[in-house]
Design a protein around this nucleic acid. Sequence first.
RNA 1: CGGGGCGUGGCGCAGCUCGGUAGCGCGCCUGCUUUGGGAGCAGGAGGUCGCCGGUUCGAAUCCGGCCGCCCCGACCA
Length: 491
Amino acid sequence: MNTRKRRRKGLTPRSEDFSAWYNEVVQEAELADYSPVRGSMVIRPWGYGIWENMQRALDDMFKASGHQNAYFPLLIPMSFIEREKEHIEGFKPELAVVTHAGGKELEEPYVVRPTSETIIYSMYAKWVQSYRDLPVLLNQWANVMRWELRTRLFLRTAEFLWQEGHTAHATEAEAEQEARLILGIYRTFMEDWMAMPPLTGLKSRSETFAGADRSYACEALMQDGKALQAGTSHMLGQNFARQFGLTFQSEEGREEYAWNTSWGVSTRLVGGLVMTHGDDVGVVVPPRLAPTQVIVTPIARSDEQAAVVMEKADGIVQALQRRGVRADVDRRRHLSPGAKFFEWERKGVPLRIEIGPRDVERGEVVVVPRVAGVSGARKEAVPEGDAVGGIGDRLEALQAQLLEAARDHREGMTFRGEVTSVEELGDLLDGGAGFVYSGWSGDPGVEERAKDATKATIRVIPGEEFRSATPPSRCIGGGEARMEVVWARAY
RNA sequence: CGGGGCGUGGCGCAGCUCGGUAGCGCGCCUGCUUUGGGAGCAGGAGGUCGCCGGUUCGAAUCCGGCCGCCCCGACCA
């Protein structure tokens, strides 16, 4: 009934309906919009700008660790995707298939790539003969399609953008090292750039990528207490190498199958960013990923004032840009200052500089950080020179604050201790827990039973740095624990 | 794929029960006045009422079919 009012004046509060809040904020902040194509979205400039900054940061890290980019075809022969048995079992339900082209039915249908292991390793088989040709360390930035039944902007769409790294190695140890190296890169990226601290570790068998021996993952906790799988790195063993004849002659002259890894993160990260930092005012974008880090909003009555103020604003933006800050002026004359404030807060620009006649007179500007909580909080009048010089520090401080807040939130919603029954797990989750640590015997039956009863899954068998000081001794399904695991309900 | 909801100017909706050819808010355009937290007034543009068929003198409205989208549950980055 007050939908109209709400649509203009604000979002559904997160506490009322997190899912509704998410849908609204993504559209209201102009990150993305629904498209005419079922389950497919349009990523708008603000959302795409965030993704571009993510891409740049990740791409630099991949390159720094010896990887190169390449590009493989969108269409994959059906027979390729069918070759690895578990792989096809995993993807079959969500394949889009091209059966006609050039006005004729094709002899062999193509699938629109849901992931590119098969076509990429078929090419590696052609390129690799000797151990001297290894390792192959390639990445591609691409779109993929998985025909999902239920979709949500950024989190799950039929088509999405991602990077997929595919490597081939001479030894198992080397491939294993690669898979872990990438997991570490993902974790660093999520912490340092997204201010989203994930748990990392190994996936249980049932959650392992179709066709992989082992999957590693980054699992981030969203504000509503649900986990988001934010990145995966797979040790594929020799499964694909065997199917595609990816062999090499070793130093000793033997013919051997190569060892592969594959790893990816997607535009889903943008959704994770929103659900990690957003508030009831709108999105909050960490400074390092913000397409615009500082928005200068001029305030003026008369045209004469506007000319003076605008000149000042331009000067400030130029000074900031010279310092490498992504700054911009909102020059629109038909919007009131207040309207502009709300708009940029909704979009999550980290810092706003207000500048009006009063400020020009005093040689000051007003600096306003986009902090979680109240709109327009913490306005501060700062001498113009100090403002320009201090922006870098302010942005870094905001970046650090966001990471700290996210980490506090994660820890605040994490339960560690002995959980000795599936019922107890359910109670903890219903009571507001996000991540629940427990012991596990390793029995898939226990995992399945817990999932049916609580809707939670084992998100990760945590890596060393995330394990409890005192490991749980009892399995959640009864009996003795053989390892520690982390449960959560997940996106 | 099961359950629910919705398709009416760009957006959000009313009108449908009880048939008579479409209305409101926001947005948009023009002008004037405004601008330190979502501006005001005046004038204006904009609609094959999702699609197909039926009933009727006449259908947004009644009937049948189809399509699409969104939300909730089983699979997935």
